[in-house]
Computed example of a mutant assay.
Amino acid sequence: MSTAPWPIEIVHGQPSDLRAVNAIMAEAFDPRFGEAWTPSQCMGMLALPGVWFTLACIDGRPVGFALARTVLNEGELLLLAILPAMRRRGIGGALLRSVIADARDRGAEMLHLEVRANNDAVQLYRSAGFSKIGERRDYYRGHDGNVFDAHTFSKTID
């Protein structure tokens, strides 16, 4: 993995940033897999307690985001996306480290996530210390009717 030759700024997102989040999702999530959320799903989730999102920006431009939540002493990474042209430059790792730190600060002792079985991001999660703990058969339903398994991962937060 190479790193970006420019500084990656990690900032906490505001509701006014949801337009950028939706634009990143539209570009980052292939519609074949049915992973992207609608704007109303994002807004609904952000209205819940313990939910936050983080943006990765380069030169003031959002290039990635992560959406997460904590409930009691557990956290969950709900979404993480990077613009395709900006992948493999350390942005996903920076966002993931930020989510882990934020979850710890919010009292989480464990962080969970779920990812499509053949998603390239699995390598990122494994390198950050996440371990596979389960599988959901035929969880994702793409717009073309195809189904894909989801794998669940967890990490103890030190």
Rank of each mutant, 00 (worst) to 15 (best):
F53E: 00
M43I: 12
G93R: 13
R61Y: 02
N118K: 12
L95E: 01
L80G: 14
G75D: 00
D144Y: 01
F130K: 04
A4T: 11
G13Q: 04
S154Q: 14
D158P: 15
A23M: 04
L55V: 04
H12W: 14
I100L: 13
D30W: 08
I100P: 09
H151D: 08
S40D: 08
L111E: 00
S131L: 12
D17H: 14
A66F: 06
F153E: 00
G44Q: 02
A128V: 02
I58E: 02
D144G: 13
F153T: 03
M1N: 11
D120A: 15
P15R: 09
E114F: 07
D158S: 15
R87N: 06
L46I: 11
R61N: 05
A28W: 01
A20V: 07
P84N: 12
E27L: 03
I157C: 10
A101D: 11
F130E: 01
A28I: 02
T54R: 03
F65Q: 00
C57Y: 00
P39D: 05
L46F: 11
R104Y: 10
L55H: 08
G142L: 03
S16M: 06
R89Y: 03
I10H: 03
R32T: 12
R136K: 12
E9W: 03
A68W: 07
L67Y: 05
M110L: 13
L96R: 05
S127C: 09
W6Y: 15
P5Q: 07
V63F: 00
I58R: 14
V115F: 05
C57K: 12
F53K: 00
A85D: 12
R97N: 15
L48T: 14
I133W: 09
D149F: 10
T3V: 15
G75P: 04
D105W: 11
R104K: 15
L113R: 09
I8D: 01
V99R: 11
R69Y: 10
D59T: 04
L83A: 06
L80N: 12
K132H: 11
E109S: 13
I58D: 00
D144T: 04
V51Y: 03
I91S: 06
E74A: 09
F148L: 02
R116F: 04
H12Q: 15
